[in-house]
Design a protein around this nucleic acid. Structure first.
Lengths: 149, 149
DNA sequence: TCCTAATTGATATTCATTCTTATTTAGGAT
DNA sequence: ATCCTAAATAAGAATGAATATCAATTAGGA
């Protein structure tokens, strides 16, 4: 924790109570939180903190790579402390994001990038489909429909 | 083109002039277009078409896999005709999408998917950054700034 | 040609995020 | 310890992409 604050300070940013709180909230959670969720949790401790501050600081934290942002395209973006980057399988039904413990940025891809002279600033890999539970749910519903015909 | 319209019809959707236009515009473009850009192009031919119609139909076309949607998270989503699946390097500056002639869906990833029992309906891999030309452009601008100080 | 569900246009609405501005504050300088 | 100032904040207005609403129109089968 102090480490995170030191990183902020080292880059010339001030250590404000708001920033402290945002980082604490992120650290305590083990799932991705939306800005609004973060705001709520922060406000449980310090009710006066404004949403604008949350967004502003999340952007800052993302820029300095302390936090990673995940956009599922189907609602608000979600944030988590940056403990290394991750890719996900996102369920179209329940929205759960399952981590893929692998990254497609391997040799062959890197070579192609170099060939084209492209300057990479980020990459994103995402699989969409249905998680186990929702597959089951769908099958049950399909059976219902069949039997009601 | 007629093929695309037949696909629509086969699925029970009506072939409206608006849908025809949207598909034509997408077909003529070789880059990703935002909904707003598509609207403008469509309106050059048929000015009365509403944005709502554009969005509605783009969503439909994406659902039936005739069109693919690409979200850069830094502005409006972009759309292109689905000519087989491809992955891209997208330039943050000029928006050009350079094809990556490779797919991250290889053995290791497939294994992970199977382990989790995930049912894949689609996947998306995207690299963002700067293309050669725009790298150059940026360097020239940076030099200008330096010399003006 | 008629009929009706599908589709559309126009506009209001939503909702996440950013902007604005006056006020406050962290933390280096004195 | 106090002062000073750029950085940061609170509150709320503004933005902008996308969706919802609803009355009017239309594609295409009967």
């Amino acid at each position: 924790m102090t480490e995170l604050l030191e990183r902020l300070s080292a880059l010339g940013f001030k250590i404000t109570p708001q920033r402290r709180l945002i980082l604490e909230v992120l650290q305590e959670s083990n799932r991705h939180l939306s800005a609004e969720e973060i705001a709520e949790l922060v406000r449980e401790i310090q009710p006066s903190v404004s949403v604008a501050t949350i967004y502003r600081n999340l952007n800052l934290l993302v820029e300095i790579h302390l936090v990673s942002k995940l956009d599922l395209h189907d609602g608000p973006a979600r944030y988590e402390l940056n403990r290394g980057h991750d890719h996900h399988m996102v369920c179209l039904d329940c929205g759960t994001a399952i981590k893929i413990g692998a990254c497609p940025m391997q040799e062959d891809i890197k070579n192609i990038i170099q060939e084209k002279g492209f300057e990479v600033s980020s990459h994103h890999f995402e699989i969409t489909g249905y998680c186990k539970q929702c597959q089951l749910k769908r099958r049950i519903e399909e059976d219902k429909q069949k039997s009601s015909r």
